[in-house]
Write a protein that binds this DNA or RNA. Sequence first.
DNA 1: TATTGTTATACTCTATAACTATA
DNA 2: TATAGTTATAGAGTATAACAATA
Lengths: 158, 158
Amino acid sequence: MSKRLESDLDTSFMDGLIGYNLRRAYLVIARDFAQSLAGVDLGPVQFTILTLIDANPGCTQNIIAKAISIKRTNFVALLDGLEAQGLAERRPSPTDRRSHALYLTHAGQTMLADLKPRIIAHEQKFAAIMSSAEADLLRDLLVRLRRVGADSADETEI
Amino acid sequence: MSKRLESDLDTSFMDGLIGYNLRRAYLVIARDFAQSLAGVDLGPVQFTILTLIDANPGCTQNIIAKAISIKRTNFVALLDGLEAQGLAERRPSPTDRRSHALYLTHAGQTMLADLKPRIIAHEQKFAAIMSSAEADLLRDLLVRLRRVGADSADETEI
DNA sequence: TATTGTTATACTCTATAACTATA
DNA sequence: TATAGTTATAGAGTATAACAATA
């Protein structure tokens, strides 16, 4: 197998680009993440929303949407999906009648407790190929990278 | 502005995940990359294809598709777009009548020469926030990360 | 039988514009 | 006037299944 490797190709220009390498690594991890969620009707973003509601009960849609850099407008359907599955719910906000206070249902908490170990196992598969010092630096560099775009970002806070 | 920061949110679980930080950084760079290509009818993947055909004239669709981890099936429309704009062309392969030999047209070479400086400027905006040693380590870590998924990848070579 | 390219199709994520109800 | 949520819609990017031509 692999009679002809893609290493025959000259990819030198792309290989030097941070963005290109970032995309390649992201795609690999995103696929593995999705496999970790196999059998569950949740996308990666929905899992993230689940964890954030769990850690911040009563928070609003906007707060979460900004925190994870997705548009308010795209948040609606994602939350609709969680609500339809009985995992989360919108309650009227006690302080602002425009906004909703978000909570996990009991089923949502159970689901999250079931999924977290899967995600941690998925993560460890990747963390295993670097030292903890390298992992720390990697996270730090990724955070710094995403702050570069902070000015050009319109409504989605970085 | 920014009367209430998302840092009020407890995002500790997600912050610890490599995949999450990778996604956030990737999205920021991908948006900036797209802006660098503003006014040109090319997506990021099409730009990548353009550079690879330029560096590897006569190569086949499959070789490039594998090199950048996209499906053969999705490559077709991307290349169609390049051909429709007169930037690239499919010629019959001299050795295998199933495959096509890919080449840039003169217009394609001119376009690429125009775009490369834009992409390099885009890259430098991000490279500027780290030392060259950090950038080298980052690229190395990203390559190592994407190789973790090498076994579970079916047809798209990592 | 396996591989290259192809069509058709669907799903996820992201994006913009315009609306409503509140503030 | 601005903000929170919503609807509708569009576009990338990615995914699978099935096919024709060639190896």
